[in-house]
Design a binder for these strands. Structure first.
Lengths: 150, 150
DNA sequence: ATTTTTTTGTTGCATTTACAACAATATTAT
DNA sequence: ATAATATTGTTGTAAATGCAACAAAAAAAT
């Protein structure tokens, strides 16, 4: 049953590749769409949480967001109470890009689920959700430098 | 239901991240494990097919395999009939690494599926398999330069 | 209160990733 | 048989990715 993880990997890489190709049209470089959609949907989120949400290294997120700021899709705002954090918001340009990102995602989704019934899609979602919950604990464990035994 | 694809992305990135950290112990750099396991399991496979299997750009696969060859995990052999292709095989060193790769994968799998019944795991696998089939067609379409309409 | 630890953010560096563009063989169409 | 196309492999270049190491603020422990 190790093949479950391989299927997940194949699907994820293929989808990511498709998105990266398609979003060049918006002048988004590799991976940037991941951050932009989530900032649009979670205004005020901080970079650290965004990295955790996406499951990507903190420093990778930091640089992707820097680029998005430079290219004007996103802006960072200082928090009033906490001098350390910077809250992220989509700019007008970012908001304009969002519908396209959403539409592409919805389309890929419909293609991915073609031939599955409504109920099967539901089942898949719930099972994946549980798997994700399991794996994110593991990810945080290993990311923090802990060693797994097997 | 777009969230299905996001769950897949999160799971895949987290797992990949874990594997990359753990396989540094074997002196495998980022991503190399993907190629090495598959070459071990499919001796004689050519690079082009391997890239398709993994769902990664041809040139990315080319360089990853180059590195694996230099570090002695893999060797390329000329085909007798076809002068163009090079068949890939794991070396002794590669074969020795394989059990560790396998064990890590199995362990991640068991963690991922924790709390799911045997039947639920089966269901998940079959649904993912169908999704993968759907998406790989789309990937090849877009990779070849075709434009999707949505 | 003050020390220790955690959280958040950044930069230097080495590496992978992937698009473009090219070359050579193989396959298919005429 | 020859021409056109597809397959397979490579290299140049630009960019993302992620580890290590640092800094500063915040939170927790003493």
């Amino acid at each position: 049953m190790t093949d479950i993880l391989r299927e997940v990997g194949m699907i994820a890489r293929a989808l990511d590749s498709i998105s990266n190709i398609e979003f060049k049209e918006l002048d988004l470089t590799k991976g940037q769409y991941l951050y932009l959609v989530r900032i649009c949907e979670n205004p005020g989120i901080i970079q650290e949480k965004l990295a955790e949400m996406i499951k990507v290294d903190r420093t990778t997120a930091a640089r992707a967001i820097q680029k998005l700021e430079i290219s004007g899709f996103v802006e960072k705002k200082d928090d009033e109470k906490n001098k350390k954090i910077k809250r992220l918001f989509s700019t007008e340009k970012g908001k304009q890009a969002y519908p396209f990102l959403k539409r592409e995602g919805d389309y890929s989704n419909s293609v991915a689920l073609a031939g599955l019934s409504e109920e099967e899609s539901e089942t898949l979602f719930h099972l994946l959700h549980r798997v994700r919950k399991n794996i994110e604990i593991e990810w945080e464990f290993v990311k923090k430098g802990n060693k797994r035994d097997y």
